[in-house]
Simulated scan of single mutants.
Amino acid sequence: MTLLLPYDRYCDEILAQTDELRAVLKDADLTAVVPTCPDWNLRELAVHVGGAHRWVGEIVSTRATGDIPEERVPGIAGPESEEPGALDAWLAEGADGVVAALREAGPDARVWSWGTEQRPAFWARRMAHETAVHRADAALAARAGYEVAPELAADTIEEWLEIVSAAQRDGDPEAVELCGGGRSLHLHATDVPGAEWLIEFGEDAFGWRHAHEKATVALRGTLTDLMLVFHRRLDPGSTRVEVLGDAELLDFWLERASFG
């Protein structure tokens, strides 16, 4: 895992992204279905985010050496009251708690994670992006605007590539199909100079690098929109992005890229 942003920045982003999520939820219909997570309504999405914060906070604060079952995490099920104000306060409390635990531990303490990195640095990055991407889900459901800072959007793409690569190494049945020599996918941000990725399909695995080169298929758009497509929050057929070349290869990637 390579951290593109400072540890403290990830902690700051957990708080900032949670605040922006809370702002989206403030005047929204919490029973509205989330189109990008159709099994959830907005309230359930918020409980998922706040629950993840509490789960990670418990892992980091206790220096857990293994997974902690959800039933052992205080308050993970959400606020007792159905009132929107209670949900708002509960979200803020969860974000404050996980960030306090992360800051107290520092980036290099030994803690369990489901990733290859067994330290709080993994969790700070993961929770920053978990919150930012689910804020996009909430914004789509509430028909609100959405944008993230360029460096954060770029890092969500980098982290996602690392996660999918790890899933491929671990034998995830969908991720292992992301291979086959001679094919490539180019991501090109139109609003941030140098924000480009070339994903190359090798015979047994894929790799990536920063490059401006011709590829089998290219996805062009703002960095925020590239991030949203890459996380399957924006359809690649949207007029907000441009697909050049073999669109089926992009679909092939999006269908198989996963956590494992």
Rank of each mutant, 00 (worst) to 15 (best):
Y7S: 04
D8V: 12
R9F: 13
Y10A: 09
Q17I: 02
D19F: 05
L21S: 04
V24N: 03
L25Q: 04
D29F: 00
A32Q: 05
P35L: 02
P35T: 04
C37Q: 10
E44S: 13
E44L: 06
A46P: 13
V47Y: 03
H48N: 08
V49K: 10
V49M: 10
G51Y: 11
H53R: 14
R54F: 05
V56D: 05
E58H: 09
V60E: 02
V60P: 02
S61R: 13
S61M: 00
A64K: 01
A64W: 01
T65G: 05
T65P: 00
G66Q: 08
I68G: 01
I68N: 02
E70S: 12
E70T: 12
E70P: 00
V73W: 07
P74S: 10
G75W: 14
I76M: 14
A77P: 02
S81I: 08
E82S: 13
E82T: 11
E83R: 13
L91H: 07
E93R: 15
G94T: 14
A95E: 11
G97N: 09
V99E: 10
A105L: 01
D108Y: 01
R110N: 08
R110L: 06
E117P: 02
E117R: 06
Q118G: 01
Q118P: 06
P120L: 00
F122C: 00
W123A: 06
W123K: 02
A124T: 10
R125V: 10
M127W: 04
H129R: 09
H134Q: 07
A141C: 03
A142Y: 05
R143T: 06
G145F: 01
Y146P: 00
Y146F: 14
Y146L: 02
E147A: 13
V148D: 08
A149P: 03
E151L: 12
T156K: 10
E159W: 07
E159P: 10
L161R: 07
V164S: 07
S165V: 00
A166C: 01
A166N: 09
D170A: 15
D170H: 13
G171L: 12
D172A: 15
P173S: 06
E174W: 12
A175P: 08
V176P: 11
E177T: 15
G182T: 11
G182W: 04
G182P: 05
H186V: 01
L187V: 08
P193Y: 06
P193S: 07
G194E: 02
W197N: 05
I199R: 10
E200K: 10
E200S: 15
F201V: 12
D204S: 15
D204K: 15
D204T: 15
F206E: 08
G207P: 08
W208L: 06
R209F: 02
A211R: 14
A211K: 05
E213D: 08
K214V: 13
K214H: 12
T216Y: 01
L223Y: 06
T224N: 07
M227E: 12
M227P: 00
H231D: 07
H231P: 01
R232G: 09
L234Y: 05
D235Q: 04
D235A: 15
T239K: 07
E242N: 03
V243K: 06
L244P: 00
G245R: 04
G245T: 10
L250E: 09
E255C: 02
R256A: 10
R256I: 11
A257Y: 01
F259P: 00
F259L: 14
G260P: 09
